[in-house]
Amino acid sequence: MNHDRNDVNHPDHKAPAKPETPSEKKERKAHESENQDQALEETFPASDPVSPFVPAKAPD
């Protein structure tokens, strides 16, 4: 499947043919964690404050 397991309304969503094995679950969780880490890195540095730009007055 090429969609997130939480996409229950996805057209390709159907019940799994067999239950997930412990090793499959571990692999899926690792993949989800890697995706989350990558998404977090892409938003870095979201916690940095915005630097307000104050333009100087034009010389007369």
Rank of each mutant, 00 (worst) to 15 (best):
S33A: 12
L40I: 07
K18D: 04
K18S: 09
K14Y: 05
E42W: 09
E32L: 03
P19G: 12
S47P: 14
K25Q: 13
T21V: 03
S51C: 00
R28N: 08
A17P: 03
K29C: 08
A30G: 12
A39H: 06
E20S: 06
V50W: 13
V50G: 05
P45K: 01
T43K: 10
P19F: 14
A30F: 13
D48G: 02
F44V: 12
S47R: 15
N35Q: 15
N35A: 15
A39G: 08
K18T: 08
P19R: 11
A39I: 14
E24F: 08
P45W: 01
P22N: 13
A30E: 15
A30Y: 12
K26T: 01
P16M: 01
D37C: 07
E34C: 03
D37W: 14
P19T: 13
S51W: 06
V50C: 05
E24W: 10
E27I: 00
A30K: 14
P45H: 03
V50P: 04
H13D: 03
A46T: 03
K25E: 10
K18F: 05
Q38A: 11
F44L: 14
A17W: 06
K26N: 04
A30D: 15
A39E: 13
V50L: 11
H31N: 02
S47W: 15
T43A: 02
Q36C: 07
E41K: 13
E20K: 12
V50A: 07
T21Y: 05
H31T: 02
K26Y: 05
S51P: 04
E41W: 11
E34S: 07
S33L: 07
P16C: 01
A15H: 03
H13N: 06
Q36K: 09
F44E: 06
A30Q: 15
P45D: 10
F44W: 13
H13V: 04
A17K: 13
Q38F: 11
P49W: 06
H31R: 04
T21K: 07
E34T: 09
E42P: 00
E20F: 01
T21W: 05
Q38G: 05
Q36V: 08
E24Y: 09
V50Q: 10
H31D: 02
R28G: 04
E27F: 04
S33I: 01
D48W: 07
K18C: 02
S33W: 01
E27S: 04
S23Q: 13
E41Y: 11
P49D: 05
K14T: 05
L40S: 09
H13F: 08
H13Q: 03
E41N: 10
P49Y: 05
K14I: 00
H31M: 00
P45Y: 01
E34D: 05
A17L: 09
N35W: 11
E20G: 02
A46K: 03
K14P: 08
P49R: 05
N35V: 15
V50D: 12
A17M: 05
K18R: 13
K25M: 12
V50Y: 14
E34N: 07
P22M: 11
A15I: 10
P16F: 01
D48L: 06
N35L: 15
A30I: 09
P22V: 11
E20Q: 11
D37V: 03
A15L: 11
A30S: 15
E32K: 06
P16Q: 02
Q36H: 08
A46V: 03
E20H: 06
